[in-house]
Each structure stands twice: as C-alpha cells, then as structure tokens.
C-alpha cells in the first residue's frame, strides 16, 4: 500500500504560540485516519497546513510522492488535488448551489461549463441534493450546506479529502446526514484525514485514530484499542472527559 500523505517533522507557530511541535503522520491510499484531541491541540492547523492554507515553519509534507512544501511549488495546482471541508461550511453566499460546485472546476481545471454542470448535478443527486441546485446557501439547513460543501470539494476529483470538524457547527439532528455522506465516501475508497469530536463515528469509520496533544501525535492505533485501552495517561484523561460529557 503506497502512502497518499506523509507529514514529516511538521512545526507551525502563530507568533510566539507553537501549535504544532513536530508532527509525523502517514496516511495510506484509501485509508481513513481520524484526528482526535482537545480544542487547541492543533487538529485544524494540521489540516490547514496540509492544504497549504498556512505556511509551515519546519518539516515537510508529501502528497502522492510529491513534496508540496518544497520551494517554488505551484500551490494552486496542489490544492486542486486536496479537498478540504470546513467546520463553518464556507459556501459562497452570492452563488447558487450549482454555481458553488461548478466554480472551481470551470476556473481552476478549465472544464467546460456544460460538462461541469453535468458532473455537479450527478454529484448533487448522489448526495440527495438534486432539488436544491438552484437554491442559495442561506436558504439551506446546516446539514444541507455542509453536504454541498463536501460536493463542492469532490467536484475537483481530489486524491485526498481533509475534513475539519465538519459536524461541530450542526444541530444534533443534522449530524447524521453529514456523517452518512462521509461513510459513503469511505466506502468508495476515498483517502481521508478527519478531525472530529464524534468518537462513535471515528470508531465506525476510521482505520486508525491519532490522538493529538500539545502539537504532537501522542498516540495512534486502531479505533478499538485507542478508544477502549489507550496507553498514554493523557489519552486516557481526554477520553474520560469525553465519556463524562456523554459523547461516547
């Protein structure tokens, strides 16, 4: 199995605050890896670094064998291969659902409008959004908006998807429809790196769970082992708090 993503000794600071202090991580093709950890542990920053939305201070990131953090790399070309979905959806409010999905393929890939729309319609119907294509984002529920955001990222046919706490901003009753979409992606063999607070979901979907603590991956392993018998005391503490909060 070849590596879709390799993160090697990644350091990232914001001013004097060192958020990532040497992260090492490898994700194989078709593997689903969940990142867990407290707020501020660096999950989002790690994902943003992989998508080159944040410049890194030290280390390197390799996607499908290409070092994307090397100097002189065309960041636009790299980002087209890596999809990211944000906690707050970040749909474009001045465009219809269909245009949200076709914008990047037509502009960044040069796909014809006709073909981009045909592909977008197919993706939208696959995720139960066919009747929403002419709506504007503000008129959709949070769950629908997040599913559109996922479709928007998928329309670029990425090699790798990064999901940044995609259900954290949703009302509880809307979480399931979004998780269902992600399950379907996993079943289709999509390589994914997922930051999440949904431990039950992580247990179902992940091939591997990584516990991020104070900017390093403190412990990782298969879901059953990580969630039932973690070795590190910090991991145990974190999970205990999650259990006490009724989230597992």
């Amino acid at each position: 199995m070849s590596e879709a993503l390799v993160v090697d000794g990644l350091h990232k600071s914001f001013g004097t605050l060192e958020v990532l202090r040497g992260v090492d991580l490898a994700v194989a093709e078709h593997e689903v890896v969940c990142l867990i950890g407290a707020s501020g542990s660096g999950k989002s920053t790690l994902l943003r670094c992989v998508n080159l939305l944040e410049p890194i201070d030290q280390g390197r990131i390799v996607v499908e064998g290409e070092e994307i953090t090397a100097p002189g790399v065309n960041v636009n070309r790299i980002r087209r291969r890596i999809g990211i979905v944000f906690q707050a959806y970040n749909l474009f409010p001045h465009m219809s659902v269909l245009r949200n999905v076709t914008l990047a393929p037509t502009l960044a890939l040069g796909t014809s409008r006709v073909q981009a729309e045909a592909e977008a319609k197919e993706l939208l119907s696959r995720f139960g959004l066919a009747d929403k294509r002419n709506d504007y984002p503000d008129s959709l529920s949070g769950g629908q908006q997040q599913r559109v955001a996922i479709v928007r990222a998928l329309a670029m046919r990425p090699d790798l998807m990064l999901l940044d706490e995609v259900t954290s901003a949703l009302d509880p009753e809307l979480v399931a429809e979004v998780l269902e979409v992600i399950r379907e992606l996993a079943a289709g063999g999509m390589t994914m790196l997922i930051a999440t607070h949904e431990m039950g979901f992580a247990r179902d979907i992940a091939n591997r769970i990584c516990f991020l603590d104070e900017g390093v991956i403190l412990e990782q392993g298969p879901p059953e082992q990580m969630l039932t018998e973690p070795k590190e005391p910090r991991t145990q503490q974190f999970l205990q708090r999650i259990i006490n909060a009724g989230r597992l």
Binding site: L53, R79, R80, N90, A108, L109
Partner: peptide, 20 residues
C-alpha cells in the same frame, strides 16, 4: 474564510478576488 475556501479549491488569488 471565504477567500480560504476559494483558495482551497485551487483558485488563484486573482480568481478568488474576482469571483468570490
């Protein structure tokens, strides 16, 4: 975050500015 979303999809700075 609007610019970040546009850039994350592979749009250039100029494309993001113009369209988003």
């Amino acid at each position: 975050s609007q610019d970040a979303a546009a850039r994350s999809l592979g749009l250039s700075h100029w494309q993001s500015l113009r369209k988003v």
